[in-house]
Protein backbone atom coordinates (compact mmCIF):
# COMPACT_ATOMS: atom_id res chain seq x y z
CA UNK A 1 0.00 0.00 0.00
CA UNK A 2 1.39 3.36 -0.97
CA UNK A 3 0.61 5.76 1.88
CA UNK A 4 2.88 8.51 0.55
CA UNK A 5 0.70 10.59 -1.82
CA UNK A 6 3.57 11.14 -4.20
CA UNK A 7 4.43 7.46 -4.31
CA UNK A 8 0.74 6.61 -4.69
CA UNK A 9 0.34 8.95 -7.63
CA UNK A 10 3.53 7.59 -9.17
CA UNK A 11 2.18 4.05 -8.94
CA UNK A 12 -1.23 5.01 -10.28
CA UNK A 13 0.37 6.88 -13.15
CA UNK A 14 2.45 3.82 -13.97
CA UNK A 15 -0.75 1.77 -14.08
CA UNK A 16 -2.34 4.31 -16.39
CA UNK A 17 0.65 3.98 -18.67
CA UNK A 18 0.37 0.17 -18.59
CA UNK A 19 -3.30 0.43 -19.47
CA UNK A 20 -2.70 2.83 -22.34
CA UNK A 21 0.27 0.84 -23.61
CA UNK A 22 -1.69 -2.42 -23.57
CA UNK A 23 -4.43 -0.76 -25.56
CA UNK A 24 -1.89 0.69 -27.96
CA UNK A 25 -0.30 -2.71 -28.62
CA UNK A 26 -3.65 -4.41 -29.15
CA UNK A 27 -5.43 -1.62 -30.97
CA UNK A 28 -8.29 -2.40 -28.60
CA UNK A 29 -9.60 -1.39 -25.23
CA UNK A 30 -11.71 1.27 -23.55
CA UNK A 31 -8.95 3.27 -21.91
CA UNK A 32 -10.93 6.28 -20.57
CA UNK A 33 -13.44 3.99 -18.88
CA UNK A 34 -10.61 2.02 -17.28
CA UNK A 35 -9.07 5.24 -16.00
CA UNK A 36 -12.27 6.63 -14.51
CA UNK A 37 -12.50 3.61 -12.20
CA UNK A 38 -8.84 3.18 -11.36
CA UNK A 39 -8.98 5.06 -8.06
CA UNK A 40 -12.08 3.13 -7.06
CA UNK A 41 -10.39 -0.16 -7.88
CA UNK A 42 -7.27 0.84 -6.05
CA UNK A 43 -9.06 1.69 -2.83
CA UNK A 44 -11.35 -1.34 -2.99
CA UNK A 45 -8.53 -3.82 -3.56
CA UNK A 46 -5.43 -2.22 -2.07
CA UNK A 47 -7.06 -0.74 1.00
CA UNK A 48 -10.48 -2.28 1.75
CA UNK A 49 -9.89 -5.89 0.75
CA UNK A 50 -6.29 -5.81 1.89
CA UNK A 51 -7.41 -4.62 5.33
CA UNK A 52 -10.13 -7.24 5.50
CA UNK A 53 -7.68 -9.99 4.66
CA UNK A 54 -5.13 -8.66 7.12
CA UNK A 55 -7.79 -8.70 9.83
CA UNK A 56 -8.84 -12.24 8.97
CA UNK A 57 -12.25 -11.08 7.80
CA UNK A 58 -14.13 -12.40 4.80
CA UNK A 59 -12.98 -10.16 1.96
CA UNK A 60 -15.29 -8.41 -0.44
CA UNK A 61 -16.15 -10.19 -3.67
CA UNK A 62 -15.79 -7.66 -6.47
CA UNK A 63 -17.68 -7.72 -9.76
CA UNK A 64 -16.75 -5.38 -12.58
CA UNK A 65 -20.10 -5.05 -14.29
CA UNK A 66 -18.95 -2.43 -16.79
CA UNK A 67 -16.74 -5.02 -18.40
CA UNK A 68 -15.39 -2.71 -21.08
CA UNK A 69 -13.25 -1.14 -18.36
CA UNK A 70 -11.44 -4.47 -18.09
CA UNK A 71 -8.00 -2.95 -18.58
CA UNK A 72 -8.36 -1.17 -15.27
CA UNK A 73 -9.20 -4.42 -13.49
CA UNK A 74 -6.41 -6.29 -15.25
CA UNK A 75 -3.86 -3.66 -14.24
CA UNK A 76 -5.10 -3.84 -10.67
CA UNK A 77 -4.93 -7.64 -10.64
CA UNK A 78 -1.36 -7.43 -11.95
CA UNK A 79 -0.51 -4.96 -9.19
CA UNK A 80 -1.60 -7.39 -6.48
CA UNK A 81 -0.03 -10.41 -8.12
CA UNK A 82 -3.25 -12.22 -9.03
CA UNK A 83 -2.27 -12.40 -12.69
CA UNK A 84 1.20 -12.06 -14.24
CA UNK A 85 2.17 -8.81 -15.87
CA UNK A 86 3.08 -10.75 -19.01
CA UNK A 87 -0.63 -11.35 -19.53
CA UNK A 88 -1.17 -7.63 -19.92
CA UNK A 89 1.50 -7.60 -22.62
CA UNK A 90 -0.64 -10.06 -24.59
CA UNK A 91 -3.92 -8.20 -24.05
CA UNK A 92 -6.34 -8.71 -26.90
CA UNK A 93 -4.25 -11.21 -28.85
CA UNK A 94 -5.81 -14.46 -30.06
CA UNK A 95 -4.35 -16.68 -27.35
CA UNK A 96 -4.57 -14.12 -24.55
CA UNK A 97 -6.47 -14.71 -21.35
CA UNK A 98 -7.25 -11.02 -21.31
CA UNK A 99 -9.77 -9.64 -23.77
CA UNK A 100 -11.76 -6.49 -24.15
CA UNK A 101 -14.25 -7.86 -21.65
CA UNK A 102 -13.30 -10.12 -18.75
CA UNK A 103 -13.95 -13.86 -18.81
CA UNK A 104 -14.41 -15.40 -15.37
CA UNK A 105 -13.47 -18.81 -16.74
CA UNK A 106 -10.11 -17.55 -17.97
CA UNK A 107 -8.90 -14.93 -15.53
CA UNK A 108 -8.21 -15.52 -11.84
CA UNK A 109 -9.76 -12.75 -9.81
CA UNK A 110 -12.51 -12.08 -12.33
CA UNK A 111 -15.71 -13.07 -10.57
CA UNK A 112 -18.19 -12.56 -13.39
CA UNK A 113 -17.97 -12.54 -17.16
CA UNK A 114 -19.34 -9.19 -18.18
CA UNK A 115 -19.47 -7.04 -21.26
CA UNK A 116 -23.10 -6.77 -22.15
CA UNK A 117 -24.21 -4.12 -19.70
CA UNK A 118 -26.67 -4.72 -16.91
CA UNK A 119 -25.57 -8.23 -15.99
CA UNK A 120 -23.25 -7.70 -13.04
CA UNK A 121 -25.72 -6.28 -10.55
CA UNK A 122 -28.30 -9.09 -10.91
CA UNK A 123 -25.50 -11.62 -10.46
CA UNK A 124 -24.29 -9.66 -7.46
CA UNK A 125 -27.77 -9.70 -5.95
CA UNK A 126 -27.80 -13.47 -6.33
CA UNK A 127 -24.36 -13.84 -4.77
CA UNK A 128 -25.34 -11.61 -1.86
CA UNK A 129 -28.51 -13.63 -1.36
CA UNK A 130 -26.49 -16.85 -1.55
CA UNK A 131 -24.24 -15.58 1.24
CA UNK A 132 -27.29 -14.86 3.35
CA UNK A 133 -28.81 -18.27 2.67
CA UNK A 134 -25.60 -20.12 3.44
CA UNK A 135 -24.67 -17.94 6.40
CA UNK A 136 -21.43 -16.66 4.93
CA UNK A 137 -19.83 -13.36 5.85
CA UNK A 138 -18.44 -10.91 3.36
CA UNK A 139 -19.88 -8.38 0.97
CA UNK A 140 -20.53 -8.38 -2.75
CA UNK A 141 -19.32 -5.18 -4.38
CA UNK A 142 -20.50 -4.46 -7.93
CA UNK A 143 -19.15 -1.62 -10.01
CA UNK A 144 -21.48 -0.36 -12.75
CA UNK A 145 -21.32 2.61 -15.09
CA UNK A 146 -23.76 5.48 -15.36
CA UNK A 147 -24.48 4.50 -18.95
CA UNK A 148 -25.10 1.00 -17.70
CA UNK A 149 -27.73 2.46 -15.43
CA UNK A 150 -29.84 2.95 -18.55
CA UNK A 151 -30.41 -0.80 -18.44
CA UNK A 152 -33.65 -2.01 -16.90
CA UNK A 153 -31.93 -4.86 -15.12
CA UNK A 154 -30.07 -2.35 -12.95
CA UNK A 155 -33.37 -1.09 -11.62
CA UNK A 156 -34.92 -4.53 -11.41
CA UNK A 157 -31.97 -5.53 -9.29
CA UNK A 158 -32.14 -2.37 -7.25
CA UNK A 159 -35.75 -3.25 -6.50
CA UNK A 160 -34.82 -6.82 -5.56
CA UNK A 161 -31.90 -5.85 -3.35
CA UNK A 162 -33.92 -3.21 -1.55
CA UNK A 163 -36.88 -5.52 -1.08
CA UNK A 164 -34.70 -8.26 0.35
CA UNK A 165 -32.67 -5.78 2.42
CA UNK A 166 -29.34 -7.12 1.19
CA UNK A 167 -27.05 -5.15 3.43
CA UNK A 168 -24.12 -7.25 2.23
CA UNK A 169 -24.41 -5.74 -1.24
CA UNK A 170 -22.61 -2.58 -2.35
CA UNK A 171 -23.06 -1.03 -5.77
CA UNK A 172 -20.55 1.54 -6.95
CA UNK A 173 -21.72 3.72 -9.81
CA UNK A 174 -18.89 5.13 -11.90
CA UNK A 175 -20.62 8.39 -12.70
CA UNK A 176 -18.30 9.56 -15.45
CA UNK A 177 -21.16 11.12 -17.41
CA UNK A 178 -20.58 8.98 -20.47
CA UNK A 179 -24.31 8.73 -20.98
CA UNK A 180 -25.14 12.40 -20.61
CA UNK A 181 -25.20 12.79 -24.39
CA UNK A 182 -27.68 9.93 -24.79
CA UNK A 183 -29.95 9.25 -21.86
CA UNK A 184 -28.88 11.08 -18.75
CA UNK A 185 -29.30 9.33 -15.43
CA UNK A 186 -29.12 12.14 -12.93
CA UNK A 187 -30.24 12.09 -9.31
CA UNK A 188 -28.82 8.63 -8.96
CA UNK A 189 -28.64 8.77 -5.18
CA UNK A 190 -32.29 9.75 -4.96
CA UNK A 191 -33.25 7.04 -7.41
CA UNK A 192 -31.49 4.30 -5.45
CA UNK A 193 -32.79 5.70 -2.17
CA UNK A 194 -36.30 5.41 -3.56
CA UNK A 195 -35.61 1.70 -4.04
CA UNK A 196 -34.65 1.33 -0.38
CA UNK A 197 -30.89 1.71 -0.67
CA UNK A 198 -28.50 3.59 1.53
CA UNK A 199 -27.00 6.09 -0.91
CA UNK A 200 -23.81 8.12 -0.61
CA UNK A 201 -22.17 10.45 -3.09
CA UNK A 202 -18.43 10.95 -3.28
CA UNK A 203 -15.60 12.24 -5.41
CA UNK A 204 -14.56 9.03 -7.12
CA UNK A 205 -10.95 10.10 -7.32
CA UNK A 206 -10.53 11.13 -3.68
CA UNK A 207 -9.11 8.14 -1.88
CA UNK A 208 -10.12 9.04 1.68
CA UNK A 209 -13.70 9.65 0.51
CA UNK A 210 -13.75 6.36 -1.39
CA UNK A 211 -12.37 4.51 1.61
CA UNK A 212 -14.93 6.02 3.92
CA UNK A 213 -17.79 5.13 1.58
CA UNK A 214 -16.58 1.59 1.10
CA UNK A 215 -16.20 0.94 4.80
CA UNK A 216 -19.55 2.21 6.01
CA UNK A 217 -21.14 0.09 8.69
CA UNK A 218 -24.04 -2.12 7.55
CA UNK A 219 -27.34 -0.32 7.67
CA UNK A 220 -29.84 -3.08 7.05
CA UNK A 221 -30.11 -2.02 3.42
CA UNK A 222 -27.89 -2.32 0.35
CA UNK A 223 -25.50 0.57 -0.19
CA UNK A 224 -24.88 2.48 -3.37
CA UNK A 225 -21.83 4.69 -3.76
CA UNK A 226 -22.30 7.29 -6.46
CA UNK A 227 -18.75 8.09 -7.46
CA UNK A 228 -18.34 11.29 -9.43
CA UNK A 229 -15.49 10.57 -11.82
CA UNK A 230 -13.70 11.90 -14.86
CA UNK A 231 -13.57 9.71 -17.91
CA UNK A 232 -9.93 9.35 -18.90
CA UNK A 233 -8.74 10.59 -15.52
CA UNK A 234 -4.99 11.12 -15.38
CA UNK A 235 -4.30 11.45 -19.10
CA UNK A 236 -4.94 15.05 -20.01
CA UNK A 237 -5.59 14.32 -23.67
CA UNK A 238 -8.31 11.83 -22.82
CA UNK A 239 -10.11 13.50 -19.95
CA UNK A 240 -13.76 14.03 -20.84
CA UNK A 241 -12.99 13.63 -24.53
CA UNK A 242 -15.55 11.21 -26.00
CA UNK A 243 -13.38 10.68 -29.08
CA UNK A 244 -11.18 8.41 -26.96
CA UNK A 245 -14.03 6.19 -25.70
CA UNK A 246 -13.01 3.18 -27.77
CA UNK A 247 -9.85 4.51 -29.39
CA UNK A 248 -6.37 3.20 -28.76
CA UNK A 249 -3.37 5.49 -28.51
CA UNK A 250 -0.64 5.20 -31.12
CA UNK A 251 3.01 5.04 -30.14
CA UNK A 252 3.23 8.75 -30.85
CA UNK A 253 0.22 9.37 -28.63
CA UNK A 254 1.91 7.48 -25.81
CA UNK A 255 4.98 9.66 -26.11
CA UNK A 256 2.82 12.73 -25.97
CA UNK A 257 0.82 11.40 -23.02
CA UNK A 258 3.65 9.99 -20.93
CA UNK A 259 6.76 11.62 -22.29
CA UNK A 260 8.50 8.43 -23.30
CA UNK A 261 8.04 5.36 -25.50
CA UNK A 262 5.91 2.97 -23.43
Amino acid sequence: MASDPVALERELHAMRREIAAASSRAGEGHVPSALSILDLLWVEYREVIAAQEAAGQAPDTFILSKGHASLGLYALLVSIGTIPSAWLDQFGTYDSHLGGHPDSNQVPGVVASTGSLGHGLPIGVGMALAKRITGQDGRIVVLIGDGEANEGTVWESALLAGHHALENLVCIVDHNHSTDRALMVDSLAAKFAAFGWNAVEIDGHDHPSILQALTLAPTGAPTVVIAETIKGRGIAQMENNPAWHHASPTSADLVEMFGDQS
Binding site: P122, G126, M127, L129, A130, G152, T153, L159, L160, H163
Partner: peptide
Protein backbone atom coordinates in the same frame (compact mmCIF):
# COMPACT_ATOMS: atom_id res chain seq x y z
CA UNK B 1 -41.54 -11.07 -8.91
CA UNK B 2 -42.06 -10.27 -12.56
CA UNK B 3 -38.54 -9.40 -13.67
CA UNK B 4 -37.31 -12.36 -15.64
CA UNK B 5 -33.99 -10.98 -16.84
CA UNK B 6 -32.76 -10.13 -13.38
CA UNK B 7 -34.19 -13.37 -12.03
CA UNK B 8 -31.93 -15.32 -14.37
CA UNK B 9 -28.95 -13.20 -13.35
CA UNK B 10 -29.84 -13.60 -9.70
CA UNK B 11 -30.07 -17.35 -10.24
CA UNK B 12 -26.61 -17.34 -11.78
CA UNK B 13 -25.37 -15.52 -8.70
CA UNK B 14 -26.91 -18.19 -6.51
CA UNK B 15 -25.12 -20.82 -8.59
CA UNK B 16 -21.85 -18.94 -8.12
CA UNK B 17 -22.55 -19.14 -4.41
CA UNK B 18 -22.80 -22.93 -4.55
Amino acid sequence: GILEQSTIGLGAGLAKGG
